Simulated assay, not measured.
Amino acid sequence: MTLTTGTAGPLLTPEQVESLLIKPVLAASVALNPLCSRVLRPTAPSVRLPSVTADPTAAWVSEGAELPVSDLTMAEVDVVTKKVAGLSVVTSELAEDSNPEATAEVGRGLARDIARKVDAAFFGDGTANGGEQPDGLAALTVGAGGVQDIAAGTAPTDLDAFAEGQMLAANVGAQLTAFVTNPATALVLANMKEATGSGKPLLQPDPTQPTRRVIFGVPLLTSPEAPVGTVWGLPAERLVTAVRRDADVQADRSVFFTSDRVAVRATCRVGFGFPHTAALVRIRLAAS
């Protein structure tokens, strides 16, 4: 007879955590999509990023004349990573199975759960869960040098607001790389036609991914965690998502001892940084 007294321990090696948890999270989360943000993988609890608030001023000068001195106005954005965790329950047989597919199934379920939590924080304002999640898009200042806001009306019949959003971003030297919204709002856009009585939709398929739509060449992405009635125009180079490298997966047999099951917990730390908020565009298709 074997007596087991240990209750917790690593279920996956660091290499397995990276391939079976972190990479699927990166693939499933809109916030971590390279079209939406730059992903950093720090080892420290926070990442400090420079933020340019005013460019230096150049000028035309005469030959031999002194060049005018102009300072670069800088600020700093501190991206603090916070813990997000997922909990799953599997049978002891599955947890102990050496078959890679069994281990992968555990990782996929946890990855999907964590990806949803990351996206919820990305679109949120940081007040949920007692303020334990990082500030997201909803926490940013709108107008007056902050996020640029467009009211498209509750029943738009054209895509003019999206063209305006691209121009507003271009005015501050940015290029929108993705529009992101809730699937329900994406459906409203997908049902828009070129003209009354026409069956041809305004949105066009993405040549690289036929199942994805584009608006004036910019991919339209969806996330169930995005707010209904709002479309975010995002320039990936002006957003940063930090994912700490010390993610882990732990198993505990004591919680469900009587049913011979194992609690599997996965944790990682994520934070968001917005060093140039004026490059972001919010398009409102709702009254508020």
Results as ranks from 00 to 15, higher is better:
residue 83 K to Q: 15
residue 132 E to W: 03
residue 81 T to Q: 13
residue 87 L to K: 10
residue 15 E to M: 04
residue 57 T to K: 14
residue 46 S to P: 02
residue 18 E to W: 07
residue 163 A to M: 08
residue 176 L to M: 07
residue 78 D to Y: 02
residue 194 E to S: 10
residue 1 M to F: 10
residue 59 A to P: 05
residue 69 V to L: 14
residue 89 V to D: 05
residue 160 D to M: 06
residue 284 R to L: 14
residue 271 G to L: 11
residue 271 G to S: 12
residue 205 P to N: 09
residue 254 S to D: 15
residue 110 L to M: 01
residue 236 A to K: 10
residue 196 T to N: 08
residue 81 T to E: 13
residue 198 S to P: 03
residue 162 F to R: 04
residue 45 P to T: 00
residue 24 P to G: 08
residue 2 T to D: 12
residue 106 V to T: 03
residue 232 W to P: 00
residue 108 R to M: 06
residue 80 V to F: 04
residue 182 N to Y: 02
residue 259 S to K: 12
residue 239 L to Q: 02
residue 181 T to Q: 09
residue 3 L to T: 13
residue 93 E to Y: 03
residue 25 V to G: 06
residue 274 F to H: 07
residue 80 V to G: 01
residue 39 V to N: 00
residue 181 T to W: 05
residue 56 P to Q: 09
residue 285 L to P: 01
residue 92 S to T: 13
residue 146 G to D: 04
residue 160 D to Y: 04
residue 275 P to M: 10
residue 145 G to W: 07
residue 182 N to V: 02
residue 168 L to S: 06
residue 75 A to V: 00
residue 57 T to H: 06
residue 123 F to R: 01
residue 84 V to M: 15
residue 275 P to Q: 01
residue 29 S to H: 00
residue 235 P to C: 08
residue 197 G to Q: 05
residue 172 V to M: 01
residue 63 E to L: 08
residue 189 L to M: 14
residue 154 T to K: 11
residue 158 D to N: 15
residue 81 T to F: 10
residue 220 L to K: 06
residue 33 N to D: 15
residue 136 G to C: 12
residue 213 R to W: 05
residue 208 T to D: 13
residue 235 P to F: 01
residue 152 A to E: 07
residue 193 K to Y: 01
residue 144 A to G: 03
residue 196 T to M: 03
